[in-house]
């Protein structure tokens, strides 16, 4: 089944991306002192407003598309979350009924915990990505492209295909992973049909799929660290490990911050692996549902679109709060050079 993210939650991630990169840009602006912004200087020099008109015209196609296909649906979703839907439309005002029903859904605590657990596990991709990026930074010559491609392939692979292949690898009786484990005398479990393991199995695939993307961001961050810092550190007698923790990590912290914001947002929206790797009939499903999967069940299996919108609104609010908290905390550990 083809799975697409909802416009509502999908937008929140792109908005946060924009906000995060804005923060990065904003910081560098602060560093450059009191000079007026580039746009203002351009206008001041040329003096006629036609440049502005053209600017808006150029942005218009994208802005109109964004307003029509993202912003307006968000407004609609918020409205629909207060309505009750028939299977074929014809919604009625329902007040807070959807929110009440969702918050008292007995499946909610477990699903919320699974979602949080998955997101926390997904954060493990950050140290892994940094290590890979640092290693890749050491590689010289043509093979850099090869390694970069290898690590990036999971990012551009179809989630459906990824899920199918991993499902096969995870097969309890005939899977490659359990076969390899059996060689060292371990009797592997049924990874994706046992409720005790399924969330971890999915998180491993999630990490595997995202490492390549994070790695590219960190590699770019590493390239931005001036070499003479390391030379100076070497003169001062700092070893490789000390250099990593005292120079690399602090100067990479803006990238780490950006990646962690993105990771938490995508982790909390996890849905595709539950449907594609576990499927709708699976003894592990009851223990492995996520918030976004509950959304899918309500909307596409039970025809309760109003309820689905309520879930999306709650998820978006939680995401916004979490992202706001991350932005507040960044002041304590993110160093902008």
């Amino acid at each position: 089944m083809a799975v697409t993210r909802t416009p509502l939650t999908g937008n929140s991630s792109s908005a946060a991306t924009a906000a995060a990169s804005d923060a990065l840009g904003g910081a560098s602006k602060a560093g450059s002192g009191e000079r007026p912004s580039l746009a203002r200087r351009v206008v001041a020099r040329h003096g006629h407003p036609r440049e502005w008109v053209w600017g808006y015209l150029m942005v218009a196609p994208l802005a109109l598309g964004l307003a029509g296909f993202y912003l307006w649906p968000i407004v609609q979703s918020v409205y629909y979350s207060f309505t009750s839907w028939g299977a074929f439309g014809g919604q009625q005002w329902a007040g807070l009924a959807n929110y009440r029903a969702f918050l008292s859904d007995p499946q909610l605590p477990k699903a919320a915990w699974n979602t949080v657990l998955y997101s926390l596990l997904l954060l493990a991709s950050i140290p892994a990505s940094i290590v890979f990026a640092a290693l890749l930074n050491q590689v010289r010559g043509r093979s850099v492209g090869l390694y970069r491609t290898l690590y990036f392939i999971p990012v551009v692979s179809m989630p459906a295909a990824v899920a199918m292949v991993w499902r096969w690898l995870y097969n309890g009786d005939y899977g490659l992973i359990n076969y390899l484990l059996s060689l060292v005398g371990i009797h592997g479990p049924h990874w994706v049909s046992d409720g005790r393991f399924a969330v971890y199995a999915m998180a491993l695939v999630g990490i595997w799929a995202v490492v390549g993307y994070n790695m590219i961001i960190f590699a770019a961050g590493l390239k931005g660290i001036p070499r003479h810092y390391y030379e100076a550190a070497e003169l001062d007698g700092a070893g490789r490990v000390r250099q990593f923790f005292s120079i690399t990590l602090p100067l990479l912290s803006p990238s780490i911050f950006f990646v962690s914001v993105i990771t938490v947002i995508s982790g909390l929206q996890m849905f595709d692996y539950v449907l594609l790797m576990l499927g709708r009939s699976n003894p592990a499903l009851a223990d492995s549902k996520t918030i976004a999967y509950l959304f899918y069940e309500y909307v596409f299996l039970d025809n309760e679109q109003g309820m689905g919108c309520a879930i999306a609104v709650v998820l978006t609010v939680v995401l916004l709060l979490l992202t706001a908290v991350q932005f507040r905390l960044q002041k304590r550990w993110v160093h902008y050079a």
Binding site: A87, G195, R280, P283, L285, A286, E297, D302, N303
Partner: peptide, 21 residues
């Protein structure tokens, strides 16, 4: 009149019975 919701719910419960939980 609306088979989908209970058929889905039943399957989840049957899955738990079949898994021995």
């Amino acid at each position: 009149a609306n088979t989908g919701p209970w058929a889905t719910a039943d399957q989840t419960i049957l899955d738990q019975i079949w898994a021995g939980k």
